[in-house]
């Protein structure tokens, strides 16, 4: 059936794609825009590997039909470094050993950014809740908590 044209801003750049309206935002990012940093771990909203910020809100892009994102502002992991510099959360992930196999890491960082923007000095409980939609099978989460805590502390 008919494809439709959808425009939005991705990592600060206006983009237009012509795709079936129900194509998942995840697939559009990966296949049409070649932004493969956003990962698919489950396709059922459960793992958070596909998380991106949509109008500054954390969403699982496997559950967003692309047309529903028309006109939106989207930020993916590729848009996180500023001016060629790693974001300090990315730096903190490296230092704390928060990325092991790395497949959950882009989504985890997006969730961390959402958390820190809503709550710049989260308690451990708030961190746990903020990341609870992002499954990590490698780390047991402890290094990830530490990375977020380190960023929160350094911004005091």
């Amino acid at each position: 059936m008919a494809e439709c044209s959808v425009s939005f801003t991705v990592n600060g750049r206006i983009q237009s794609v012509t795709v079936p309206p129900m194509k998942r935002l995840l697939d559009v990012l990966r296949e049409d825009l070649n932004l493969t940093g956003t990962k698919e771990g489950c396709g059922e909203g459960e793992c958070g590997a596909c998380a991106v910020l949509l109008n500054d809100e954390l969403v699982n892009s496997c559950l967003v039909p692309v047309r529903d994102a028309s006109g939106a502002r989207i930020c993916t992991i590729e848009g996180v470094p500023a001016a060629g510099q790693l974001h300090r959360l990315q730096q903190a992930f490296i230092e704390a050993g928060a990325a092991q196999c790395g497949i959950c890491t882009p989504g985890m960082i997006m969730a961390g950014l959402q958390l820190l923007s809503r709550c710049p000095h989260p308690t451990l409980e708030e961190i746990r809740e903020g990341l609870s939609g992002n499954l990590c099978r490698c780390t047991g989460y402890m290094r990830i908590f530490e990375a977020i805590q380190n960023v929160a502390q350094s911004s005091e």
């Binding site: 954390l58 969403v59 699982n60 809740e129």
Partner: peptide, 9 residues
Amino acid sequence: TGSIANQNR
């Protein structure tokens, strides 16, 4: 209900 991402949507 779900997690933050699900609650946002």
